[in-house]
Write a protein that binds this DNA or RNA. Structure first.
Lengths: 139, 139
DNA sequence: CTATATACGACTAAAAATCTCGTATATAAC
DNA sequence: GTTATATACGAGATTTTTAGTCGTATATAG
């Protein structure tokens, strides 16, 4: 079906909100505002802070805020954190599928994976919000 | 997880084989050669012939062969046939998700979807095999 | 007529994504 | 120092999607 997970959607929705308001929000505030399951969103925000995207503040009046500016947050990196893994085709990680002996598409799929992946890595969160896009392909 | 389905993998494996050998093969031959579940592959090949990619021949000595040359078979079209649908983000088809009222990423996701989709539509099966990639992007 | 092939819908099984629960830890406010 | 509010994190349940199977019908070469 080729689509990003709800986790990635939820993460992007919140990150865009952080950019728009330049503010600190708790997981509960964001979950209620966007109607996202709280426990799920909490784990997503934890992942983002574990990976240096957000800074977390414990205790009352705590919450999350940006660790670094939107133009230094990379979209490819976000997918890497949230999509475990981005692979485009399963044989890129599971080398021993039932077709591996006679597989005739692995390198071709890998090439496409790189093109698409490079595209995501060429975009920052700022680009995502501005709907800018560097050129894809030309490898 | 962002990857193509087994159906797409199996289809590409067989299509590449058709190109390499320029031959006619039955579903059973291909299933045995590539170690793909026969019934599943049969349905995939049926989809491809329903959509004008392959020609099917009934009866003994029957099977499948190309309906048109590899350079006129489009990768985006193949995904369209096999991935039902290619959407990148779920809100593109399910407009009423729980966040729809306050969603702040739909148009941004749509933009990315178009860039990636256009890339796939810029490639033919021949390009896929040659690992070429046309440049698109810059939208 | 028979063997071999495609056509196609319904069903089951397996895998993955999504969501929930329980418990631990940190800290601001009082 | 107690309490209320927040993050941290692993385990488990549920739902959805994908992958694979089964049964039956139809076409056709020999």
């Amino acid at each position: 079906m080729i689509k990003v997970s709800k986790e990635t959607e939820y993460a992007l929705i919140c990150l865009v909100k952080f950019v728009q308001d330049n503010n600190k929000y708790s997981a509960r505030e964001l979950a209620e505002y966007f109607n996202i399951p709280f426990e799920l969103l909490a784990k997503i925000l934890q992942k983002l802070s574990q990976n240096g995207i957000l800074r977390s503040i414990h205790g009352p009046q705590g919450g999350y805020m940006f660790e670094k500016p939107a133009h230094s947050i990379n979209l490819g990196r976000l997918l890497q954190i949230l999509e475990n893994p981005v692979e485009t085709v399963s044989c890129l990680t599971h080398r021993n599928c039932r077709q591996s002996k006679k597989c005739n598409i692995r390198q071709n799929m890998e090439h496409i994976h790189h093109v698409v992946n490079d595209y995501f890595f060429s975009l920052t969160l700022e680009d995502f919000i501005a709907r800018k896009s560097a050129a894809i392909g030309d490898r």
